[in-house]
Amino acid sequence: MTDPGRMKTRLVIEAPVESDDGQGGVLRGYVPVATVWAAVMPDSVQHGVEADADGAVVRLRIVLRSGHALSLRHRLVDGDRIYRITALRDSADRRFTELHVDYRIT
């Protein structure tokens, strides 16, 4: 899927945690579970307005070594950028995981 030498970006994998808000609802937060090296490659950019939030959505493809139990509920963090996972799959040899992510630029 990728040359391991291209994995030059350090990302933090965060898992969702939920707690009772005391009023019948849920407070959702995230906790870091791992820090990984990854290859981050552009996929596409789409400009638009969604829920009164003008900005662009940047789509990226991220490849990292397998070994992390990821789901669409996890997210990746690179400094102030928060990547939302939209799709994921393992490579044929199961050595790598390919993620499709997006983040919003406002």
Rank of each mutant, 00 (worst) to 15 (best):
Met1Tyr: 07
Thr2Trp: 03
Thr2Phe: 05
Asp3Met: 03
Gly5Asp: 15
Gly5Met: 14
Gly5Trp: 13
Gly5Thr: 14
Arg6Met: 14
Met7Arg: 15
Met7Gly: 08
Thr9Glu: 13
Thr9Leu: 09
Leu11Asp: 06
Glu14Met: 00
Ala15Leu: 05
Ala15Glu: 15
Ala15Thr: 12
Ala15Asn: 08
Pro16Gln: 15
Pro16Tyr: 03
Val17Asp: 11
Asp20Met: 03
Gln23Ser: 11
Gln23Pro: 00
Arg28Glu: 12
Arg28Tyr: 05
Gly29Val: 00
Val31Gln: 14
Ala34Cys: 04
Ala34Ile: 05
Ala34Glu: 11
Val36Ile: 12
Val36Asp: 08
Trp37His: 06
Trp37Leu: 10
Ala38Tyr: 01
Ala39His: 12
Ala39Met: 09
Ala39Phe: 09
Val40Ser: 07
Met41Lys: 15
Met41Pro: 02
Met41Val: 09
Asp43Tyr: 07
Asp43Ser: 14
Ser44Cys: 00
Ser44Thr: 04
Val45Cys: 04
Val45Leu: 06
Gln46Arg: 15
Gln46Lys: 13
Gly48Cys: 01
Gly48Asn: 05
Val49Arg: 08
Glu50Thr: 11
Ala51Thr: 06
Asp52Arg: 10
Asp54Ser: 14
Gly55Asn: 06
Ala56Met: 07
Val57Ala: 10
Leu60Asp: 15
Arg61Cys: 01
Ile62Arg: 05
Ile62Ala: 08
Leu64Cys: 08
Arg65Gln: 11
Arg65Trp: 01
Gly67Met: 01
His68Asn: 13
Ala69Asp: 13
Leu72Pro: 04
Arg73Tyr: 09
His74Asn: 15
His74Tyr: 07
His74Lys: 05
Leu76Ala: 03
Leu76Arg: 06
Val77Ile: 11
Val77Glu: 07
Val77Pro: 02
Asp78Pro: 00
Gly79His: 03
Asp80Trp: 01
Arg81His: 10
Arg81Gln: 12
Ile82Ala: 15
Arg84Ala: 15
Arg84Asp: 15
Ala87Pro: 05
Arg89Cys: 05
Arg89Asn: 13
Arg89Pro: 03
Ser91Lys: 08
Ala92Ser: 13
Arg94Thr: 14
Arg94Gly: 05
Arg95Met: 10
Phe96Leu: 05
Phe96Arg: 05
Phe96His: 11
Phe96Asp: 14
His100Val: 11
His100Arg: 12
Val101Phe: 04
Asp102Ile: 07
Tyr103Leu: 11
Tyr103Met: 10
Tyr103Lys: 05
Thr106Arg: 13
